[in-house]
Measured scan of single mutants.
Amino acid sequence: MTGIVKWFNADKGFGFITPDDGSKDVFVHFSAIQNDGYKSLDEGQKVSFTIESGAKGPAAGNVTSL
């Protein structure tokens, strides 16, 4: 699925993605970002991701920028 990064705190390594389908915002951890180098996201960035079952509920996985 796709969405827009609502916010991401690079110091803490997590944030939230707002899915394009209008569903509830999804937690994203830096370890789910699939790019080389520094793993961070920018507010407003368009991303593709999967929904994984995290310890505290749904979380984004396999996050790639579009």
Rank of each mutant, 00 (worst) to 15 (best):
T50C: 09
G15F: 02
V47C: 04
K39R: 11
F14T: 03
A60D: 01
F16K: 04
V5Y: 01
V5Q: 00
A10H: 14
V28F: 15
F49N: 00
G3M: 01
Y38E: 10
N9L: 07
D42G: 13
F14W: 15
N35Q: 14
I51H: 05
D20K: 05
E52V: 15
H29D: 04
N9E: 04
G54H: 13
Q45M: 13
K12E: 05
K6L: 06
Q34C: 13
V63G: 01
D11N: 13
D36A: 13
T18Y: 07
F8G: 01
D20E: 08
A59H: 14
P58H: 10
M1I: 10
G54C: 10
E43V: 15
M1Y: 13
A10G: 10
F27A: 02
S48E: 08
G13S: 03
L66D: 07
N35Y: 12
T64C: 11
T64G: 05
P58Y: 11
T2V: 09
D20P: 03
T18N: 05
K56S: 11
V28R: 00
F30K: 10
K24G: 11
I4D: 03
D42V: 15
S53I: 14
P58T: 12
F27P: 03
D21P: 03
F49E: 00
V28N: 00
T50P: 01
V63K: 01
G37A: 09
T50K: 07
P19D: 02
N62G: 08
S48K: 12
D42E: 15
M1R: 11
S23V: 05
E43Y: 13
I51A: 04
S48W: 14
K6P: 01
G22L: 06
I4W: 11
F16L: 05
K6Q: 04
T2C: 08
V5F: 02
V28A: 03
F30V: 10
I33K: 02
I51Q: 05
K46V: 10
K46A: 11
I51N: 04
S65L: 15
V28H: 00
N9K: 09
A60V: 04
D11M: 14
A55H: 12
V5R: 00
F30S: 08
Y38F: 14
A60F: 02
T18S: 11
S48V: 11
G57S: 08
K24E: 12
G3C: 01
N35W: 11
G15C: 01
W7V: 04
I17D: 00
I51T: 06
D36L: 12
S40K: 14
D25M: 07
G44Y: 05
F49I: 02
V63D: 01
T64F: 10
K12V: 08
Q45D: 12
F30A: 09
Y38H: 12
A55D: 12
L41A: 02
V5G: 01
G15M: 02
V26G: 00
S65A: 13
D42R: 15
N35I: 14
V63N: 01
K46G: 07
F27H: 02
F8P: 00
G22M: 07
D42Q: 14
S65K: 15
E52C: 12
I4N: 06
G15N: 00
Q45G: 07
S53Q: 14
K39C: 10
F8L: 02
N62Y: 10
A32H: 07
F14Q: 03
Q45I: 08
G57I: 05
L66F: 09
I33D: 02
L66E: 07
G61S: 14
I4S: 08
N9P: 02
L41E: 01
Q34T: 13
Q45Y: 05
I17Q: 00
A59I: 14
V5I: 08
F49K: 00
V63S: 01
G44K: 05
S53P: 15
G22D: 05
N62D: 06
G13E: 02
F16C: 04
N9Y: 06
D21E: 06
V26S: 01
K6A: 07
V47G: 00
K24H: 11
G54A: 10
V26F: 04
A55W: 13
D11G: 13
G44M: 05
G44S: 04
G54E: 10
A32D: 06
G37P: 09
T2Q: 08
F16Q: 03
S53V: 14
L41W: 04
G44I: 02
S48C: 12
F14I: 08
N9Q: 06
A10T: 13
D25I: 06
S40D: 06
V26R: 02
H29L: 05
S53H: 14
I4L: 08
D25P: 07
G37E: 10
A10V: 12
G57K: 07
N9T: 05
V5W: 02
F16I: 06
G22R: 06
A60C: 05
V63R: 01
N35A: 14
Y38R: 11
E43R: 15
K12P: 02
G37L: 10
V28G: 00
T50M: 09
F30L: 07
T64I: 14
G3A: 02
Y38Q: 11
S23K: 07
I4P: 01
K12I: 09
I51L: 12
G44N: 06
K12L: 12
I33Q: 03
G15I: 02
F14K: 02
Y38W: 14
G22T: 04
F30Q: 07
L41Q: 01
H29E: 04
V5D: 00
G15L: 02
K12F: 09
S31N: 07
T18E: 07
S53Y: 15
L41P: 02
W7I: 04
N9I: 05
E43I: 14
T64V: 15
D11P: 08
F16S: 03
F16T: 03
K24D: 12
V47Y: 02
G22V: 03
P19G: 03
S48A: 13
H29I: 04
F30H: 09
N62Q: 11
D36K: 12
Q45T: 11
A32P: 02
I4Q: 08
G54Y: 11
S53W: 15
F14D: 01
A32Y: 04
S31G: 06
S23A: 08
Q34N: 13
I17K: 00
K56W: 15
K24R: 14
V28Y: 04
D11Q: 15
A32L: 03
G54L: 08
Q34G: 08
G3S: 00
G57M: 06
A59V: 14
G61K: 15
G15E: 00
I4V: 14
D11S: 15
K6I: 06
S23T: 12
L41S: 01
T18Q: 11
V26Y: 05
K6Y: 04
S23L: 06
V5P: 00
E52F: 14
F8K: 01
F14V: 06
V28D: 00
I17G: 00
H29N: 04
Q34S: 12
K12H: 09
D25N: 07
G57Q: 06
D42C: 15
E43T: 15
T18L: 12
G37S: 10
F27G: 01
F27D: 00
N9C: 12
V47M: 02
K39M: 08
E52A: 10
M1W: 10
T18G: 05
S48M: 13
D25W: 04
G13Q: 03
G22C: 09
F27Q: 02
G22W: 06
I33M: 05
M1D: 04
D11V: 15
V28M: 05
G22F: 06
I4K: 12
V5H: 01
W7M: 05
I17E: 00
V26K: 03
S65R: 14
D21H: 07
T50G: 04
G57W: 09
A60N: 01
K12S: 07
A55F: 13
K6C: 10
F14A: 02
T50R: 09
S65D: 10
G37M: 09
E52R: 11
W7F: 09
I17M: 02
P58Q: 10
G57V: 05
K24I: 11
K6V: 05
A32I: 04
S31F: 05
A59K: 14
S65M: 15
V47W: 01
K12M: 12
N35M: 15
N62P: 02
M1C: 10
A60Q: 01
L41C: 03
S53A: 14
I33N: 03
G13C: 04
F30N: 05
T50Q: 09
N9H: 09
K24N: 12
N62K: 11
G3K: 00
K24P: 14
D20S: 10
P58R: 14
A32T: 07
D36C: 15
L66T: 09
E43F: 13
S40T: 14
F8I: 03
V26A: 03
V28E: 00
I17A: 01
F27M: 03
Y38N: 10
S31R: 10
N62C: 10
A59D: 04
S23R: 08
T50F: 10
E52W: 11
N35C: 14
N35D: 13
D21Q: 06
F16W: 10
P58C: 09
D20R: 05
F27I: 03
Q34M: 13
S53C: 14
F14H: 05
S40G: 11
Q34F: 09
K46I: 11
V5S: 01
D36Q: 13
G13W: 02
K56A: 10
G3H: 01
N62W: 11
A59Q: 15
K46C: 14
D36E: 14
D25L: 07
S40W: 14
I51V: 11
W7C: 07
G57C: 07
G37D: 09
H29P: 03
Y38A: 12
E43P: 15
